[in-house]
Nucleic acid binder design. Structure first.
Lengths: 317, 317
DNA sequence: TGTCAGCCATGCATATTTGTATAGCAGATC
DNA sequence: GATCTGCTATACAAATATGCATGGCTGACA
């Protein structure tokens, strides 16, 4: 019933306990001791007037309410981390830490050379890569700069369009040699397709209609895009791949280019209040140039004319 | 250079000093003492390795960097407040605190009866109204439920469309009696127009083109929508008003209804993770019903047919 | 110019928080 | 079933942060 603001430290302790699952673990993680953490949690429960954990000799198990409070505590942690990054940036020497969010494929296959070039120019900079299949929460400040697919509509964001990154169906020469070349869409059903495991909203938006490209037809199911790409390269079967990536490997063959093509509307995004920051701006511009270039490489300019596009993936909704 | 995480309490102290402008003021505001605050700030500066304030006998004046860090600290505060609200909600007794963000006009003219009805049904609930002309930051959790204009495109939000709230030009009978009735668009230029002071992006998007409705023509300039509305009611001159509000006052006369009409695409929004919350859901549904009803009232159904719409205000960009 | 009201900085006694050490409890292992 | 390992809870001493009192500074005002 006490209406006082709980010390913000308590939130950090709460977060650690949620993460580690026990007071002892949280204490280790924070460099504190278990009794301190225990007192923190108890104090937090008392000031909020709620029960957050069920104590047991196996650790603390969070209540339903604690689960509901978790995202808020995480938001605080994100903001705290963002503040520290912002404080660490030295514009005069162009050094500091910048956190970039992108998809795993982009982060692994596309970004590294761009980042290397930037780092070459600015040796004082430290980059953090936050790769995840689902969109990173730029609004929550989990990252400073993000590569998103789909036009961002949030205010307070500065966004620039990188162009359309196109996806096509590919297979390794080796696979095609032993399994033959699919000539029609219907042929695909008899091939070893590589595809998703769970049908996320993202997949649903991107998936071309009218194709035999459904979960039941897959010969390899995974939600890990990198594993899918690696399997494609290993000759496991047929799957989607960003054209810009596939083109770098002469052993990968584009299939049914006339009838199958997806494209992702790709944007580079950062917070408006980072715009005045010289280091940020430089990195932003650098990435913008490089990514636009990449998107153009991956565009269907070199492909045969008159192709029908099956679906323009616009990510969401 | 110390790479340790500053205690989160320090951020709170930082925020208070930024807000109050002095250690002493911050100490008063937090119920602490000035030396403590002083130590906090010093420790924060040391762990971050930066200078945040210039000390002076008149108080502390923030450095440029401190200004840059401010939004992050505010984000932490917002998240902290949201966490406390979430913790305060008791679903069994349907009590708790819910924070609603809306425009000033909606908050003053439209919401109160809706909120009163809800409160009647759930006496345990406490509502917070956060009214501002610019959009409240729902993403930063400054509010739990928001009424926004323009389709929200952020993921992790549950949004429902309330319809189009239409705006028309109105004047008080008294004004028209002494100044006459404008019959054409051009007539407006000779009248006492009530309009904005600064041309914000919002205004820019909403402003009908081809009208003599520009800053130079205004006889009363204000960015305060409520003051504009009050002046309209007081018979100062001609201005825009939500039709749903104007209709309640028989002394307000719609002008040039055939040729002037704006509409705001209005949405009710809340966070996805509040969806499971019974109290939240109930309030959300209650507001949805009431607002849809209001938007319909304010819609041009009762107006003459064949009117041309000048602009469909879509808020941003 | 003297006085007052605001502010920050510092020294010191006190309160609070932390860590250490220990006890107790549940489950896995031999 | 004895033992070992993980966990939490409690008592007490050490470390730390806090408040109080004070001094020094600047600007406003009579």
């Amino acid at each position: 019933m006490a209406d006082k603001d709980p010390g913000w430290e308590l939130y950090r302790s709460f977060l650690a306990v949620m993460r580690e699952g026990s007071l002892s673990g949280a204490a280790r993680s924070l460099g504190m001791t278990q009794p301190s953490l225990g007192r923190h949690i108890r104090e937090l429960e008392e000031t909020l007037g709620v029960s957050l954990f069920a104590r047991s000799p196996q650790g603390l198990s969070p209540t339903e309410l604690a689960q509901a409070l978790l995202p808020h505590a995480q938001a605080m942690a994100s903001a705290s981390a963002a503040l520290r990054r912002a404080a660490a940036i030295r514009e005069d020497t162009m050094s500091g830490v910048v956190r970039i969010a992108a998809s795993e494929v982009i982060g692994v296959e596309v970004l590294p050379p761009m980042l290397a070039a930037f780092r070459q120019r600015h040796p004082g900079v430290v980059l953090e890569l936050s790769l995840s299949s689902r969109m990173e929460n730029l609004l929550r400040r989990d990252a400073d700069i993000a590569i998103r697919t789909g036009r961002p509509t949030q205010d307070a964001l500065v966004a620039r369009r990188m162009g359309e990154i196109t996806l096509g169906m590919y297979a390794h020469k080796r696979y095609l040699k032993s399994h033959g070349l699919p000539k029609t869409l219907a042929d695909l059903a008899t091939h070893a397709l590589i595809g998703f495991d769970h049908e996320t909203p993202y997949v649903r938006a991107m998936r071309p209609a009218g194709l035999p490209y459904t979960r039941e037809n897959f010969a390899l199911r995974t939600d890990n895009d990198l594993a899918a790409l690696a399997s494609l390269r290993a000759g496991y079967g047929i799957g989607f791949c960003q054209c810009g990536i596939a083109q770098r490997d002469p052993a990968l063959v584009r299939l049914l280019a006339d009838s199958i093509e997806l494209s992702m509307d790709t944007w580079l995004v950062m917070h408006e209040d980072l715009r005045r920051n010289a280091l940020m701006r430089e990195l932003y511009d650098h990435l913008a140039i490089a990514l636009v270039d990449y998107a153009e490489t991956a565009s269907p300019s070199e492909a045969p004319r008159g192709r029908t596009r099956m679906l323009r993936g616009s990510t969401k909704r």
